[in-house]
């Protein structure tokens, strides 16, 4: 059903190819978060990998920066409808993180934890195989606090709330445990190409 009188913006073939349904392209980098921006100092920052309640590996800021660093340029898609093309990130691939910890994923699910107690759940298969990283740099510079610095999870093929800001840990869970927004009406997986925005989206 067409909306009377609505034509929309002129659309390029490239935008049509790269924009998931319901998204629009933006050039700036909007910020969305549930509360104040936490004040994280890299001197206090640690990253903990856990299997259930049990810590498997822990890195401080210097140790984490000494892990192999990889660059990824990806399109990102926020559930609030904006998409941004070709965002350049640098950080530690989740594959390299697991290798450094000497761990094979013991379960199929993970929960990302942030210093402000934010959590979000991501299946392991969305994190491995070159798909995701713990990003430390954006556009060649440390990530600004409002955008999740010092470190944020980057899972660019899922809606961007899955790319937890201020991340300080990943935890294997037995089941797919809902995180912060997933408990508040948002989808458990969040694939933008399937438009999995809200809980009951297929």
């Amino acid at each position: 059903m067409a909306t009377r009188g609505f034509t929309g913006r002129p659309r390029t073939a490239e935008a049509a190819r790269r924009l998931p349904p319901g998204q629009y392209q933006t050039e700036d980098f909007p910020v969305l978060s549930a509360g104040p921006t936490p004040r994280a100092r890299t001197g206090d920052w640690t990253f903990t990998l856990k299997a259930g309640p049990k810590p498997v590996a822990k890195w401080n800021w210097a140790e984490f920066n000494a892990l192999p660093q990889t660059k990824l340029v990806r399109d990102i898609h926020c559930v609030t409808k904006w998409s941004k093309f070709d965002t350049p990130w640098e950080g530690v691939m989740i594959d390299d993180l697991f290798e450094a910890a000497g761990i094979e994923p013991p379960t199929g699910f993970m929960l990302a934890h942030s210093i402000d107690d934010y959590t979000t759940n991501v299946p392991v298969e969305d994190l491995v195989g070159g798909k995701a990283m713990i990003a430390l740099r954006y556009q060649g510079a440390p990530i600004e606090p409002a955008h999740g610095g010092p470190a944020r999870l980057l899972v660019p093929h899922l809606y961007f709330w899955k790319s937890a800001k201020w991340v300080d840990g990943l935890q294997f869970t037995e089941r797919d445990e809902a995180g912060f927004w997933e408990l508040r009406g948002y989808h458990m997986r969040g694939d933008p190409w399937k438009e999995q925005r809200y809980t009951d989206d297929p």
């Binding site: 067409a2 909306t3 034509t7 929309g8 319901g22 629009y24 609030t80 925005r197």
Partner: peptide, 16 residues
Amino acid sequence: LDVRLTAPDGYQAQRS
């Protein structure tokens, strides 16, 4: 609320 508008060619725009 999410709002969706549909153009004659089927293109849809959404905003919150």
